[in-house]
Structure formats: C-alpha cells, structure tokens
Design a protein around this nucleic acid. Structure first.
Lengths: 117, 117
DNA sequence: TTAGTATATGAACATATATTCATATACATG
DNA sequence: CATGTATATGAATATATGTTCATATACTAA
C-alpha cells in the first residue's frame, strides 16, 4: 500500500548528487527547443535544401512542395532559433543556414538511423 | 493576379535536380522521429541521466521528479527508438543508453545553444 | 500614386503529444 | 496460492503544433 517506491537502488544522497549534475533547466529547455525544430519533416526538408543552397522562399516552396504560407511560417521558426539568416534582394528574400552545427547534427542522426534502422 | 510565384531564381530543371538530392521521404521521416524524441525536456532529462548511469525506473522517476507512470510512458518511446536498452533484475528493470550517438548529438546541440544563446 | 509581386502573419482548425489516473502484468516472498 | 512491489499500459484530458485561408506588409515599376 506504500505509494513511494522503495527500490532505492541508489542511495538518497548520491541521487541528490546525480541530480545536481543535470544541466540547469533553462539549458534543458533550450536543448528541447533546438531539437523540436528538427523534429518536423517539413522543416528538415527546408534545412536540408538550405544546407546546400541559398534559396528564396518561392523556390523553397517549390522544392518542398509546400504552400508559400506554410514555408514562411516554418522559416519564421528557423529564424527565431537562429538556424537561418536571410538577405533581401528586391522583393525576394534569400535564406541560408546560419549554423554549421546543422550539418553535424544531421550526420550524427543519419548514422543512428542507418545503424538502428 | 497570378497565384504561381514567378521568381524562378533557380531554373526549373536545376530545381528538379536539387529536389532529387533530397534523402528519400522514409529517411526524412525517420530523422524527424529521431529528433522528436529529443524535443521534449522530460525525455532529455531521462536521456541525460542514462548517459551517466544505468538506472531503474523508480530512480529515474525520483531524479526527474516525474511520476512513475509518466517515466514508463517516456521510456517506452526511448525503447521503441532503440535509444535505450534494459535488463531485468528481480522486479526492477534497469535502463541504460543503447547508442553512443546520444552523447554526440547532445554535444553538438549544446555547442549551438552556447554560441547562439 | 497605383498596380503587381514576394513574403509574412493572424486566426481557425485539425492533429499530435505529454500527463494523469486507474489498472494490468511480472516477479518475489511468505 | 496470496500478498506486495516494480513496471507497463489504456483511456481521458489538456496542451502544443502544423497547415490553410485571408490578408497585411514591403518592395518595384509604370
């Protein structure tokens, strides 16, 4: 009838020590936000294309086969997370990657996919 | 009044070529799934603890300050994505990481967080 | 200024997802 | 076998998130 589990495979004071090693909750939140950006296939496609070329919104829409509005919404997310940068040329806005980590993250994840299936 | 954008900053046939370079949609989906797992702070905590120690469910619950049920639900997700392995010892089940990529992914992401803020 | 084009954005809607609660399962022990 | 403990899971709920539609903004050119 005891609600508290009593397994205590690790002593209470060591649990406290392990807990203290955890990065602070802001860092954890930021990490989560970062990965969430990569957690959507449409954003992954955009990131992939941008990892290869500097592209305007309309071309990104054609490449990803998404509506312009949907692309803009997703680009906003990438922008806010500083994963992309952009420059204006007349009425068009060209996006490109702002972060070399994107490719690294891709590569590690791909290794996982390939090994595990 | 033209709905189709006409910017065509990249010619149509090259667009096709770029499109073909995109990893197939199964790979994209898998990548998205992989990152989605990392996109939740509670799972990140669990993964972090498991990156340091082999731990039973009850200890993970205490460390992460989550209910046992919530931990089990999240562990199921980690298991299904083959990020963790487990062994039974009596009534307890010990979880540990199944994948050295987890730490690598963490590290690259942390670099990004630290640089970009 | 007016019309046209490329991009951005707010609101609405549909879907996905994390947590909780209750309960089931698996193992240990008397 | 019956009881207790550790973990797993289904259903319900609340929240988050992606897309669409309509429209706004920013720029260009006549």
């Amino acid at each position: 009838m005891n609600k508290q589990c009593a397994c205590k495979s690790i002593p209470e004071d060591e649990l406290k020590r392990i807990k203290d090693e955890l990065p602070d909750s802001d860092t954890i939140e930021s990490l989560g936000e970062f990965f969430k950006v990569f957690g959507d296939p449409t954003r992954l496609k955009l990131l992939y294309f941008l990892s290869q070329y500097e592209l305007c919104v309309a071309d990104l829409a054609r490449l990803s086969e998404m509506e312009q509005s949907a692309v803009s919404h997703q680009l906003k997310i990438l922008r806010l997370h500083r994963l992309t940068k952009q420059r204006r040329d007349g009425t068009m806005i060209y996006y490109s990657l702002n972060d070399n980590h994107v490719r690294e993250v891709f590569d590690v994840a791909l290794e996982h996919i390939e090994e595990i299936g």
